[in-house]
Design a protein around this nucleic acid. Structure first.
Length: 555
RNA sequence: GCGCCUGUAGCUCAGCUGGAUAGAGCAACGGACUUCUAAUCCGUAGGUCACAGGUUCGAAUCCUGUCAGGCGUACCA
């Protein structure tokens, strides 16, 4: 609907300029159409006359008059177009014109809200990428929900999306993992060992050690320690990764590709990247280490890629990794990171630009941390004791839908309080159920309709013409906003906009439901209302799908 | 010190990249189940948009500064 109005306004501007009543502008202003808060200001309004005023050297209200005179309402949308305030043009849409929105929803079904904004461009979303040194915790859960939802939204907007998980299966932390398991294994086999605080403290390390002991633990002890540690590392890494995959699967998150950091070393890719940088003078030696000139690309200081001891840094493999991503043909690459990594953005962007890729093709979604609470009290989480607020526990306790919805109920820039008790509550406090309830209620209406022998739920133009109640128009107006909401959340990479949209639509529906009955004596009106609530159900389902939340038939 | 993020109702948060009189939910108070699911709805009350300047027809939104909180500032990952 908004697009149609933009077209009307845009056409009026063209004609006004063609007729020389308005002088042609060098730069055409972006036409902004908004929905005013107050009903008295109509269904839509544009500020175009005021934007043009200074350039045209004309009073805004005068410009508004000219624009209105040149408007062609070919679709018969408007009951009235009025000038108000300092020069707003307000549009009052005929109630019947709103019915075309309903028709569109019926026609497009699951594709309502989809667009070709992405024009098939390839885009990659890399998220979670948690180190395989321990199980996923709630913070990863938020990253998983955000990454997956962003991927769903982009895909809905016509991008070819790939979901990727980067496995840090190389370097010191993996060695530490191996040593941790090795020491616990020795301990398990009755040896007295000193377990350093630098090792991973969690109970899952003991479990892994027990498993290995049951397998071929004693045989391992006969190997040279270095080899035994390496074996422990490989075993633990695989096991933990399997657990991560399991947790993600139960969270409804599926990756298209799991990319191993080690593979970048095995293929010589990291070394090649460094050499390429060396050839182009992008690195230099200092204090025995090799530095990347990231300051030349906007970073605040240069960064080490090869340490004095000859080992490459994590950053080095990350540069190679991101170059490799773009070589795979992605137009855009999006990384979802925990907010504690924000200091890393400047150098990563610098490295990408140094590799000859425009910096705006890379973006990072920083996800702020999650405070896990229980009835308002913080849930104790001690990394030292190795106790995690595990994602699997949280999903087990509150369920996948509630967890996902809550993770997506805040802007990713703000910290999130996740209250386990609240998440289980089935009240208004907990918006998941509030939204899902709409879907279930409508399903219930349909069941009743079928019992009454009404089995036609297809589009019925005449029946829909009966929908004249103001609550009905409000409902349709809300649904008309959906496609735009999806596009905005795709542009800004902000899935929470979908959550808020759904809560808003749900509130409007519940109010309607309490005020009007769908199945009434008048069969024509019943059919019209059935068309209406079916559309609501469709939009709720589409929106929930973008969040990865189910739409239940019964609750 | 420097950098990034945040500051909106008692609490938790939206606010459509500058629009008209500031928006929800929770908590408080008062109402609505013989109906298609009350996991719902209706109403009342609640505000110096941290503070001070600036930009313009117009600012919660943009710019500068101040204050407060979070995070970061490795030859760790």
């Amino acid at each position: 609907m908004k697009e149609q109005i933009i077209r009307v306004v845009s056409g009026a501007l063209d004609r006004a300029q063609a007729s020389a009543e308005l002088r042609p502008a060098a730069v055409r202003p972006r036409i902004v159409v908004e929905e005013p808060r107050a009903d008295a200001h109509g269904d839509f309004s544009t500020n175009l006359a005021m934007v043009l005023a200074s350039k045209q050297k004309m009073a805004p209200r005068k410009i508004a008059e000219i624009l209105i005179a040149h408007m062609h309402d070919t679709d018969g949308l408007f009951a009235d177009v009025a000038i108000a305030g300092p020069g707003f043009i307000n549009f009052f849409v005929r109630p019947a014109a709103w019915h075309t929105v309903l028709k569109r929803i019926h026609e497009h079904g699951p594709r309502y809200g989809a667009s070709e904004m992405g024009r098939g461009r390839k885009i990659q979303v890399e998220f979670v990428s948690s180190n395989p040194t321990g199980p996923l915790h709630v913070g990863h859960g938020r990253g998983a929900a955000v990454g997956d939802s962003v991927a769903r939204i982009l895909s809905c907007c016509g991008y070819m999306v790939q979901r990727e998980y980067y496995i840090n299966d190389s370097g010191r932390q993996i060695e530490t993992l191996g040593r941790s398991v090795y020491l616990r294994l020795q301990e398990h086999l009755g040896q007295r060992v000193e377990f350093p605080s630098t090792c991973y403290q969690g109970d899952y390390i003991r479990e892994l050690a027990r498993e290995m002991a049951a397998d071929d633990g004693r045989h391992l002890m006969e190997l040279p320690p270095e080899e035994a540690v390496a074996r422990c590392a490989r075993y633990a890494c695989e096991k933990i990764l399997a657990g991560i995959r399991r947790d993600l699967a139960s969270f409804g998150v599926a990756f298209d590709r799991w990319f191993s950091e080690q593979s970048l070393y095995d293929s010589g890719r990291v070394a090649q990247t460094i050499e390429a940088f060396r050839d182009r003078g992008l690195v230099y030696e200092n204090d025995g280490a090799l530095w990347f000139k990231s300051t030349a690309f906007g970073d605040e200081k240069d960064r080490v890629v090869v340490r004095k001891n000859g080992q490459t840094t994590y950053f080095a493999s990350d540069i190679a990794y991101h170059q490799e991503k773009f070589e795979r043909g992605f137009d855009r690459v999006i990384d979802v990171w925990g907010a504690d990594h924000h200091g890393y953005i400047a150098r990563m962007t610098a490295a990408i630009e140094a590799g000859g890729i425009a910096r705006d093709r890379f973006s990072v979604i920083l996800v702020q941390l999650v405070n896990l609470l229980r009835a308002g009290q913080p849930v104790a989480m001690s990394t030292r004791a190795g106790e995690f607020d595990r994602l699997s526990d949280v999903i087990g306790e509150v369920g996948r839908d509630a967890a996902r919805f809550i993770f997506l109920s805040r802007h990713h820039d703000s910290t999130l309080d996740f209250d386990l008790e609240l998440a289980k509550q089935k009240t208004n406090d907990n918006p998941v159920y509030y939204v899902q309830y709409v879907h279930a209620r409508i399903a219930s209406i349909l069941r009743k309709a079928r019992r009454q022998g009404i089995d036609r739920t297809d589009w019925d133009e005449q029946a829909v013409a009966c929908l004249t109640a103001p609550e009905e128009t409000t409902l349709i107006k809300a649904m008309a906003r959906y496609p735009e909401t999806v596009q905005t959340s795709a542009e800004l990479l902000e899935p929470h906009r979908i959550s808020y949209f759904l809560m808003d639509l749900a509130a409007i529906f519940h109010a309607y439901y309490n005020r009007h009955r769908v199945l009434v004596a008048d069969p024509q009106l019943s059919r019209g209302r059935l068309c209406l609530v079916l559309a609501v159900q469709q939009v709720i389902r589409n929106g929930l799908a973008l969040l990865g939340v189910t739409a239940p038939e019964k609750m």
